[in-house]
């Protein structure tokens, strides 16, 4: 399957976890990656800059109406929901919190599933609430691939556990295998 985009949802413990995954990706990686990391509403774009400096792909905070490009990594701005539009651009919203979160993982995952369908990969990582479970379910129902971090390897297991409980996910992977797994998806993509 030629996957086009990967969406990642992560909460507490996210910075280190994301770093450990994204550093595996080669500079010619051609899928788009869109990330919701729960953050304090007054945070700046530190997370994007931190990851950008440590990873061979460009990592940036998402701008509204930005076109989703292959091989780029987008991070939701603090205090805004991040949505995927029909024409594969990103949009923002300051609508109410969803699952006590803004940005909410469900909002990103559900809108991404509508647009990318079976060409989408959804990944739930460490976190202390249940955001993302509904969204991951929708990705599965739309024919996409679903991956959850093995709760035993997560800094906080609540979020991966909730995702596993609500969806029959395709893969439950320990943290150290997630980066290489994404790379293998890309290797398949290149072969096809």
């Amino acid at each position: 399957m030629k996957y086009e985009a990967i969406v990642i949802g992560v909460s507490s413990g996210g910075m280190i976890t994301l770093d450990k995954i994204l550093r595996h990706l080669p500079s010619d990686f051609a899928l788009s990656i869109i990330i919701v990391q729960h953050q304090h509403p007054e945070s700046d774009d530190f997370l994007a800059r931190f990851l950008d400096a440590r990873c061979s792909l460009t990592v940036k905070q998402a701008d509204e109406k930005e076109i989703i490009m292959p091989g780029k990594i987008y991070i939701a701005p603090p205090n805004y929901h991040l949505l995927v539009e029909e024409d594969k651009t990103l949009s923002l919203s300051t609508n109410k919190h969803v699952n006590f979160a803004r940005p909410s993982i469900d909002v990103l995952f559900e809108t991404a599933a509508d647009v990318f369908g079976e060409k989408l990969v959804g990944i739930i990582l460490t976190g202390a609430n249940e955001d993302g479970s509904r969204g991951l379910k929708k990705i599965k129902e739309s024919g996409g691939l679903t991956i959850v971090q093995d709760p035993d390897t997560a800094e906080v297991a609540t979020m991966p556990k909730a995702a596993i409980a609500s969806t029959k996910v395709d893969y439950i992977l320990p943290l150290e295998n997630i980066g290489p797994f994404i790379c293998s998806l890309y290797a398949l993509w290149l072969k096809e």
């Binding site: 949505l83 539009e85 029909e86 949009s91 909002v107 509508d114």
Partner: peptide
């Protein structure tokens, strides 16, 4: 209006 938000 942006479609994704309206649709939600």
């Amino acid at each position: 209006y942006s479609k994704a938000s309206i649709k939600r």
